[in-house]
Write a protein that binds this DNA or RNA. Sequence first.
DNA 1: AGAAAACCTGACCAAATGGTCAAATCGAGC
DNA 2: GCTCGATTTGACCATTTGGTCAGGTTTTCT
Lengths: 223, 223
Amino acid sequence: MAAKQQARQTQKSAARAENERAILAAAEEVFAESGFRGATTGMIAERAGLPKANLHYYFPTKEALYRKVVEHIFTIWLDAANSFDENDDPVEALTAYISTKMDISRAHPMGSKVWANEILHKAPVIQDYLETTLRSWTSSRVAVIDRWVAEGRIAPVNGEYLLYMIWATTQHYADFNHQIDTLNGGAPLSDAQFEEAKQTVVRIVLAGIGAVPAAPGGEGSQA
Amino acid sequence: MAAKQQARQTQKSAARAENERAILAAAEEVFAESGFRGATTGMIAERAGLPKANLHYYFPTKEALYRKVVEHIFTIWLDAANSFDENDDPVEALTAYISTKMDISRAHPMGSKVWANEILHKAPVIQDYLETTLRSWTSSRVAVIDRWVAEGRIAPVNGEYLLYMIWATTQHYADFNHQIDTLNGGAPLSDAQFEEAKQTVVRIVLAGIGAVPAAPGGEGSQA
DNA sequence: AGAAAACCTGACCAAATGGTCAAATCGAGC
DNA sequence: GCTCGATTTGACCATTTGGTCAGGTTTTCT
């Protein structure tokens, strides 16, 4: 008992933590589906299973809640970003990065959609992230790509545009999943289909920049 | 005079045509920036330079106006789609298609954003287009890609996922142009930069699927 | 010129929505 | 079992917004 109380004392009660979690989860869904303006605090409260007034007890304004959601998404994004650096070999690094981004698109499509909505609406909330964290991350990774080119490990390519292609393609599987599902006969991609999509993206990018894994068997698989 | 009147009689007066054009142009911008729910008829009317009540004289409801905007965008999309068929050579066809889609992203970023917003919000208005026109267009082009593969003109690749990659990447330059501008130091890509981006996309896709233009000089440019 | 049709707009309305508040309830420590 | 702060919530309010309407103006047709 005493230990339990002690644990709860750690800042916020269990009930509070649970409520905040439920609200944030509901908010991510609703913001993703409806955008900032399209989402209503009433919808979010309902999906979280509590009255609107209670939601405003935890998050004073709709914008404060939205900011928390966006910050959470940015955290996930940073995790993916790290996978770029796990290996200095272009094949390994890009394969890991693309795979991670694809997995995130499958596991957290809502987060990706909120991000997309933000950019579409000129990033009223995350503009500072774009100008600081994202900009510095991007320029340093472009430097890595430039080095790979200089070392002859990949064909000459503009690093920014390569990264944009990877971002666009991987995030497409989250942001446009409704279109993909519709073209797939109305059903979401199966695990096997998604795996094939992931492999397709990896292969096209790697072959596209002439990054071959050790043995030059790249074109050997051709029929 | 008589001739002028005759010309005006052709369905709608010049004033009417001009007003409708101004409203639709303003609506496309506002819907792109703010989404369906975020846009207000007041904002659209103001940007079009006429009172809100007048806007409602031309377009009875906000949704009717939105539908017209979306239909216009779909028309543009269909034009781009045709460029895929101008040539049966994979290099020619894909180069033309990617180039056209990139040009549209630069010329009509607002339209692309409205489309993206629609998909993000589960396509409440264009679902029927997705299930009919887009679905049949896609499956017939996938058949073309499959044939190219069977004929050994490109490496084995899943046609759907290749198309998704092209759509994602080209539309990224419209939908995420705010992010791209920010990473470009706050300024839009210059014509030269955009041209390089376009060439980068074309090259990566073509090399990525092993589509080489006649002479096998693909990897020769490597340092 | 004059009637009819088309067009324009300020004023207005009902519904939706973000946010507030006071009163009620709960829960831990004494 | 009583106190006090934390939590919960129904009722309420000010603002925004899609849409209406009556009356005025312009254009077209004869």
